[in-house]
Design a protein around this nucleic acid. Structure first.
Ligand code: MN
Ligand code: MN
Ligand code: MN
Ligand code: MN
Lengths: 158, 158
DNA sequence: AAAACAATGTAGCTGATGCTAAATTATTTG
DNA sequence: CAAATAATTTAGCATCAGCTACATTGTTTT
């Protein structure tokens, strides 16, 4: 089909290397919501004592209905615990995810700002970028950060 | 509800600033597939003379059925033109999108590599990151690129 | 305690994206 | 040219993630 004339277009029978990159991106997106919700729940719990559906809806820019259904999925997947009409709590698994996500998120923001990107745009871009930043790239960002490049190993600097 | 006792949890009535960041990320994702397909179609057209459903499927790591339906959406949105059982062509709009996307994609890859990220991981991360890199951040990446920071304005260097 | 209000939950819709299986059409080969 | 093969399309399914409208429950106020 469409191999017209004798042009003999050679095509690869097995998956191209590019395919793996797109697959990885789709995997990133599959955990993205869990990461953002975990972060938001952890923040709200610290800021106001508890994370409630309305607060999450406001912070994430969706309706409370969307939050409700997402929380059900997150509970199914073991990231949160919740009971009808009560606040939402992170499980141990959820707390680990929140912690790692928050650290990575803040590092990405700081890195963009260190490049001269405005804080506003840095925060806008980082919200999406963060989920695609691997451990290796995150380490490269940290190493490139002016003041904090060598810190963090043990945690104390000048 | 859940404002228990007289603790008086103050909550913001209007959308928080964070909401806008999440909204932007969702907007990015809404155009992501168009960008990746446009890039892939442009590449294939250059490499093999035409872009066909099977080739796109292999390159994007999805089934040919998924490609078929996505192409229908892209045609509906004016990015491609296609006829049954024939190859897929970019419209002018699609070509513009492909060109801008490809430039940004390559710049993101080059920037990550310049930070010391391995090419393999740079390509994996860039495939997702690219869609969240704003014009401002892209400019900052370009400016931070060792060799090419001042080039590109008019296009000639040493 | 009843009423008013605010939050939460449910029902039902939509669109995007993925899939497998089967039908159709085009291309290549004998 | 007919058969075999390859590509494409269609049918039908699933999940995620958004929405509006409405029902229910909890909290605050009178
Ligand atoms: Mn995010
Ligand atoms: Mn993304
Ligand atoms: Mn791309
Ligand atoms: Mn991409």
């Amino acid at each position: 089909m469409t191999l017209k004339k004798n042009v003999r277009t050679i095509r690869s029978p097995q998956p191209l290397p590019q395919a793996e990159e797109h697959r990885q991106t789709r995997r990133d997106h599959a955990v993205e919501i869990a990461e953002d919700y975990a972060e938001a729940i952890a923040d709200l719990t610290l800021e106001t004592g508890e994370a409630r559906v309305v607060d999450l809806a406001r912070r994430l820019g969706v309706t409370h209905v969307t939050v409700n259904r997402t929380i059900a999925r997150l509970q199914r997947d073991g990231f949160v615990s919740s009971q009808p009409y009560r606040a939402i709590f992170l499980t141990e698994k959820g707390r680990r995810l929140a912690s790692a996500s928050k650290r990575r998120h803040e590092l990405v923001v700081a890195f963009l700002i260190s490049l001269g990107v405005s804080e506003r745009v840095a925060r806008l871009d980082a919200e999406g970028m963060e989920h695609h930043v691997s451990a290796e790239t995150l380490a490269a960002f940290q190493a490139a950060l002016p003041r904090t490049g060598q810190e963090g190993r043990k945690g104390q600097e000048g």
